[in-house]
Design a protein around this nucleic acid. Sequence first.
DNA 1: TTGTGTTTTATTGCCTCC
DNA 2: GGAGGCAATAAAACACAA
Length: 315
Amino acid sequence: MAARSFLYGGDSGGFNSALLTNKRAPSSSSKPLDSFFISGSSHSLGSRSMVSFEDGGNGSAGRTLFQTFDQEDIGDDEYDDYFHHPEKKRRLKADQVQFLEKSFETENKLEPERKIQLAKDLGLQPRQIAIWFQNRRARWKTKQLEKDYNILQESYNILKANYENLLQEKEKLKSEVLDLNDKLLLQETEKGTSDSSSTKSQSEPLQQEQIADCVNDEDVSKTSINNIAVNGVESILEQGDSSYMFDQDHSDESLDEDDNFGKMFVTPVSGYMLPKIESGDYPELDAVNSCYLGFPGHDQDQDQDQSFGFWSLLS
DNA sequence: TTGTGTTTTATTGCCTCC
DNA sequence: GGAGGCAATAAAACACAA
């Protein structure tokens, strides 16, 4: 991309009004010395800074915090330096940045009146104010995305740890069942009667089937859970609608039962909408849970409420 | 001093809204 | 169609290690 900067061309009395109304001012309008004559350029800026707070940032009425450049105020070398590097970028002074930061905290969008006022107060071009806010919003967004990513990463890790615990528990219970089955068989064998086979527990074949089902489901479930968690993270990263970024209030959306919002939740930091995973949405996850539920006398509701907190974690 | 990575300022192009 | 927003990007300014 061509990077011919025009900065803030205009006459020495102020800024080029065309640049305020037309943000696509052609680069050709930039004259070599234009950027030197930015309204409010001053001395005492260090070597290159474009602006300074002459009054210490008290913002007294009727006076900008930024003074008009005057050749008499700076040394010849510096003056010469400006002439020979007319388009150098100049960083804002710390005080100016602080002022803008405070303003940004109040409201991260910039209405025209506020822009003009800030420009007056700081002795900058309104366009500079707009650009600063735009860049600041971009930085803010990046940070929020990082935070959301970290939150999701943490959730994923918890989910994964829970899943692994779940598998361990399942193995333990499975071996208990096998053990009990062995004992049962042993007992019945000890009875040694000829009709023992007909009095054999009817529940046994069913339990063995269930165990087999659980074993078969295991790999599928593991893959599915991982996919769900990973997709959750990816969906945030791929979320392109920035309209959420500065829209603070999504509380109503998550309560709407008539559309998909009813199954969404809002990420805590950036306010992204993500699908809320519930029991029944992913049969593979239910299959994992169901492995506990086939035993005689086992309380399913209790199991879902207790120990692993599997669904509560997801929702 | 210099090379290199990061941050900040500014431009460009595209999109949306009124 | 103009104004303003955002993403992508360039380039200056800055920080810092070697």
